[in-house]
Structure formats: structure tokens, C-alpha cells
Design a protein around this nucleic acid. Structure first.
Lengths: 226, 226
DNA sequence: GCAATGCTTCGATCCGCGGCGAACCATCGG
DNA sequence: CCGATGGTTCGCCGCGGATCGAAGCATTGC
């Protein structure tokens, strides 16, 4: 019975207390970095790396590289169901989720991520573009729609006849744990925001201050409340 | 934190291949002696005794003394649900599953899951009951409607004035990846199918053979084509 | 460029646990 | 009583895996 052995492997993966702690941390559906999960489980980075590799190989976690970070999340909703099912046999209690991310409010609100916008503003902006049909989520990332290209052109961003880096990349937001827009389009929007005076860099950090001009522009072009 | 450790202990209990084999043997809802489980798992009596003691201490099995025999069974229907759920995740991880062989075909078509029907027949039967308004999907599982209670009464199943285990539970089907009916109603339907000669157990497995009588009955009562 | 940060690999250590044989206890048939 | 059968306890062995420190690789920030 091959299936029995495989099932036992899956259960063994869940069975280690350290790995269980990691899985529990991930049970809210967000993604966490390897270091965050190591701290959450109270183990060293090497041990965490080993555990995470096993969980990925076992199909319980999926991983997304982001610069020097690696974001882990549950590979499927069924994983969470299994954990809840196991809870039926044991006691019930909500897991403690570590508060992570920068303490700086400005950083949370808006910041530069590499060459594009991140934080609450970046995530909300991307969500609006998807909702308005300017960006369509695709199999391997996202793509700009016809109306989206016209919308960007009105803002002075020409996305046609360009090659090299992909136009749209999805970037997992550090503080929001949701995707924001990267790639050439994301970089262009970030340049636009800085060049138009919508946002200004805060000296010495990656944080961005949204100016009154920016608040008005975000409301006008993206129907975003401040 | 305590719950995490307890949950990990439960998963570890399931995680040993030998114990998994025992649990699988017990998944048809019947009780087996320690010696039978030892032979089924291919281990010596002392080892089996140790494993069974652990499974009982972990709340996965219950035991019943009868003379010099000790009969073990799954402690609760939820245990079977967890095992099936783990199978779903494990099967999801393995893309290439050998889906051939007559024994596997019979298992996929109809089988017993603890005390109720599973497989294509079990899933289809539940789907028909929902479509016909006999069962209504609810927030936390499902419930039998008024017409559903009358329908079951016509089949000789009385679901009124009973307490204890819930009437309707949903169980995720291992092979179909959809829900089938568990709980008291599911168990009653399974008993009906066996007692009425609709299906017969295949010796040594959880598979069920649907008899010609059963095919006719499923068509008549549930409008199910074979 | 260089330093700092995040993560992985390697090597070594150590503990837990599954496995069995032998002996022991419990129950049944006579 | 006495053997036969079913199960458990005990002692021991060996392997697997969890852990960490140190070193190495990759990426970012300045």
C-alpha cells in the first residue's frame, strides 16, 4: 500500500511540534518569511530552513521568492482543513500570531519596494486596477488589458512596444501580505507618483509621504479614499 | 501552545506507517482484535500492543475487552474523516496515481467510510439528495428538510426524536474530492443499503459491490443511473 | 565597491522511538 | 489443576531525525 506510506509521511510532517507551530502561524492564509516563522516557532534559522524545505517537498507549503526573502504559505486550503480536523480530536484554542513588519506607520502606509509602490497604498492601488479591469490576473502573474493600456496612456505611461523586463509582475507586499504591482508598469507608476509630486521620499528610509496633491490624484484616477 | 503540542502528538500517532496501516484496517467501522491488527500491519504482537496502547491513550481508538480478546475500533467518526482528509492532501501532492486495477475501481465506485457510503455512489447519492431538496446545506454542515424526513421515512429510516450524534455530517470523499453524507443519516442509509441487499461487502476490503437490486433501487429512489 | 541582512548547506551531536525476543500475566478448554 | 492461546511488560539495539554553530551564497542598501 503505497498510499498508506505517503499518508503517514504527510502526517509525520504535521506531527513535529515545531512544524505544527509554523503551520499554525500560516493558518490565516497570509504568507510569512522564513525568519518570521523561525522566530514564531522559537528555533534557529538553520532548523527552520530544514523544516520549511521538508514541508514544501511534502506539498504542504508553497514558497515565493522575493529578493532576499522567501515567503511561505499553505499550499492549499485543504491543508488548513486538515489542521482544523486534527483540532477536533484535541483541544480548541486560537493560535497566537506574531505581529511582524515595520513599526513605522509611514512605512506601512506607503513605501518604495525596489522600484515600485508598496504598503497599504500600493496594495490598494493594485486592487483597484484589477477591480476596474485595467489589469487581469493571469496564469503566471498579470497582464495589462486594452482599457488598462489606454488608462495608463492617459496618465502619460506608454506600455506599448517595449521589451525586456515583463510589464506586470506581482510582488508580495511585506506588510499587507497581499500582492501589489511590480514589473515595468509598477516602476512606471512609482516614477509617475514621485515625478508628479503625489508622494515624497522620507529622508533616510524607504517610506513615502502622500502629499495633498497625491491624495487628490489617487481619488481622481483610482477612486481611492486616503 | 499547549494545543499545538497536543495536535502534534495526534498527528505523530497517525504518522507512523505501522499505526497508519492499523487505522486503515479499522476504517471500515468494524472492530478488530490486537492479533488481527498485528497481522494486518505485519508486525509482532509486542510491537502491536505498544502501538495500540499509544493510539488508545491518544484518543484515536477505543477498546473493548471480551474474554481474552481485546477489540479495537476507531474512537469516533471524526477520526475517519481526518484520515480521509489526509488522503485528499496526500493524493493532491502525488500527480501520478496509478488509477488502474479492478480492486481500485471497485473502491472508487463504492466503499464504506467508517459507517457510511463513500465513493462515486456515495457522492452521487448525496448530490441527488441535495438537488431534490431532501438535504439542505447549512452553515455548519447540513440538515434534513421536512420533505427529506418524509423521504427517509418512506425508506424505513426514522430521523425524528433522536439525539446524540448529529443527523447530518459532511465527509470529504477521498477519491471524488467532494462531500458525501455522514452522521446518523449517512449511517442509516448505509445500513439500509446493506440490509436491503443493494450492496455487498467485498471480503477483506472496504469496497462495496452494487447488486442488480441495488441498481434498480438507486434508480427508483434516487433517480441515479448506474 | 563594501557591509548588512536573509537564508541555506554542512558537519556533528544527541535524543526519541520503533523494532524484536524473552519472560510474564490473563483467560479459556478440559 | 494443566496446557494452550491471546496480550502485555521489560530490556536492549539501532536508526532516523531534530537541533545548533559555523561557514557559504544571494540580495539589498549605501
Amino acid at each position: 500500500m503505497v498510499t498508506i506510506v505517503n499518508l503517514a509521511e504527510t502526517a509525520t510532517l504535521i506531527g513535529d511540534p515545531t512544524r505544527t507551530a509554523m503551520l499554525f502561524t500560516l493558518m490565516d492564509g497570509r504568507a510569512f518569511t522564513a525568519g518570521e516563522l523561525a522566530r514564531a516557532a522559537g528555533i534557529s534559522a538553520p532548523t527552520a530552513s530544514s523544516h520549511l524545505a521538508q514541508l514544501c517537498a511534502g506539498g504542504l507549503l508553497s514558497v515565493e521568492r522575493q529578493g532576499r526573502h522567501r515567503y511561505f504559505r499553505l499550499a492549499a486550503p485543504e491543508i488548513a482543513s486538515i489542521l482544523e480536523g486534527l483540532l477536533v480530536v484535541t483541544a480548541h484554542r486560537l493560535p497566537a500570531i506574531p505581529r511582524t513588519g515595520p513599526r513605522d506607520r509611514a512605512m506601512r502606509h506607503a513605501r518604495i519596494c525596489y522600484d515600485h509602490l508598496a504598503g497599504e497604498v500600493g496594495v490598494a492601488l493594485f486592487a483597484r486596477m484589477v477591480a476596474q479591469g485595467h489589469v487581469r490576473l493571469a496564469e503566471n502573474g498579470a497582464e495589462i488589458t486594452g482599457p488598462g493600456a489606454r488608462f495608463l496612456a492617459d496618465l502619460g505611461i506608454d506600455m506599448t512596444h517595449q521589451r525586456g523586463a515583463p510589464a506586470c509582475r506581482l510582488c508580495l507586499d511585506w506588510t499587507e501580505r497581499r500582492h501589489h504591482l511590480a514589473g515595468r508598469a509598477g516602476a512606471a507608476l512609482c516614477r509617475l507618483a514621485l515625478d508628479s509630486g503625489w508622494m515624497r521620499r522620507v529622508e533616510g528610509t524607504r517610506a513615502l509621504n502622500v502629499t495633498p496633491t497625491g491624495i487628490a490624484a489617487l481619488r481622481k484616477h483610482f477612486a481611492l479614499a486616503p
